[in-house]
Simulated scan of single mutants.
Amino acid sequence: MDFPSYLGTMPMHAITEIHGEPGLLERFRLEIGTFDDDARARLSEALDLAADLHRDDRRVREPYLNHLLRVAIRMMHHYQVRDVDVIVAGLLHDAVEDHPAALAGPVAEGVDPVPAALAVLADRFGHRVARLVAAVTNPSWDPDRDRHVQYREHVAASLERDPWARVIKISDFTDNGVGVIHTTGPKVLSLARKYRPLVPILRELVARPDTPLAPAVKEHISAQLDLAEERFRAILDNPVRAH
C-alpha cells in the first residue's frame, strides 16, 4: 500500500480514518526509524506480541491494535519519549488486563494468571516493563464497590508511585477521552461518566515536577485534557443527543 509522504506528520485520527491499521503500522515504523537496532528489535517484538494477543479484539469499529499503536505513537511523537521500556509498556499496557491466561500459558486451576503473565513480560522485556504494565493494569472488580470509583482510586494510587506510568496512562486516556467522539451508542455515556472525574486527577499528576516530560509537552497534554473535558461535558449535558 502506498502512503503519502506526509504520513509522519498526519494527525493520528486522520491516519486511522483514511489508512486504518496499515497506516498506523507504517507510522509506527517511521517513528521507530530513528532508534538504534536493538531498540527497534525490542519495539517490533512488543508490537508482534500485542498484535497476537489482541488479534481478535475490536474497539467499536476498528481493530484493537489501532488503540495500542496510537498510544505508542503519541508518546514518541507528541510526548518526545525515547525510553524504549516505556514505549514497549505502552504497546502492552492492556495485555495482562485483557489476556492474562494467553500470556501466562498453562497455570493450575484456580490460580490467578496475572502474576504469571507479568512474569512472562519481565522475562521477555525486563522487570521495569512488567512493573509499568502492572501499574496501569486494573485489578479485578470488587462487586461490593462502585466499578468506576474503584477504577479511579486505583489509577490515582498507582500513578502516584510511578511517574513513567503516568506518561503511559495519559496517552491511553487521551486516546479514550478525546477519542470518545468516535464511540457510538449507549457506551458513550458510560465512558464519559467513567473518564470525566479522572481529568483533574491526571491534570495534577502530569503537572508535577517529577513527571518526566518537557514543559511544552505538559502544555500540550493540558490542552488535550481541556478538549476531553469539553467533550465529556457536551455528552453528559446532552445525554439524548449522545445516543
Rank of each mutant, 00 (worst) to 15 (best):
F3E: 02
L7V: 11
G8R: 12
M12Y: 11
E17T: 13
E17I: 04
H19I: 07
G20K: 06
P22N: 09
P22M: 12
L24H: 05
E26C: 08
R27V: 12
F28A: 01
R29Y: 05
E31N: 03
E31P: 00
G33T: 10
D36I: 08
A41D: 13
S44K: 04
D48L: 13
D48C: 07
D48M: 11
D52E: 15
D57A: 06
D57H: 14
R59W: 15
E62R: 15
P63V: 10
Y64T: 02
N66S: 13
L68C: 03
L69R: 02
V71W: 04
R74K: 04
R74H: 09
M75W: 02
Y79D: 08
R82G: 13
V84F: 11
V88K: 05
A95W: 09
H99S: 00
L103T: 04
E109W: 09
G110F: 11
V111K: 03
D112W: 13
P115M: 10
L118N: 00
A119Y: 06
L121A: 10
L121P: 06
A122E: 14
D123C: 03
R124S: 00
R124N: 09
R128W: 08
V129L: 04
A130D: 03
R131W: 06
L132M: 06
V133N: 10
V136A: 01
N138I: 06
D146F: 01
Q150A: 08
E153D: 15
A157C: 01
S158M: 14
D162K: 01
A165M: 07
R166N: 02
V167T: 10
I168H: 09
T174E: 14
D175V: 13
D175Y: 06
N176Y: 06
G177D: 10
G177A: 15
G185K: 12
P186E: 15
P186D: 12
K187H: 13
V188G: 01
L191C: 04
R196E: 15
P200I: 09
P200D: 05
L205I: 15
V206A: 00
P209K: 08
D210W: 09
D210I: 02
A214S: 14
A216K: 12
K218E: 01
K218W: 02
S222M: 01
E229T: 07
R231P: 08
P239L: 12
V240I: 14
A242C: 11
H243V: 04
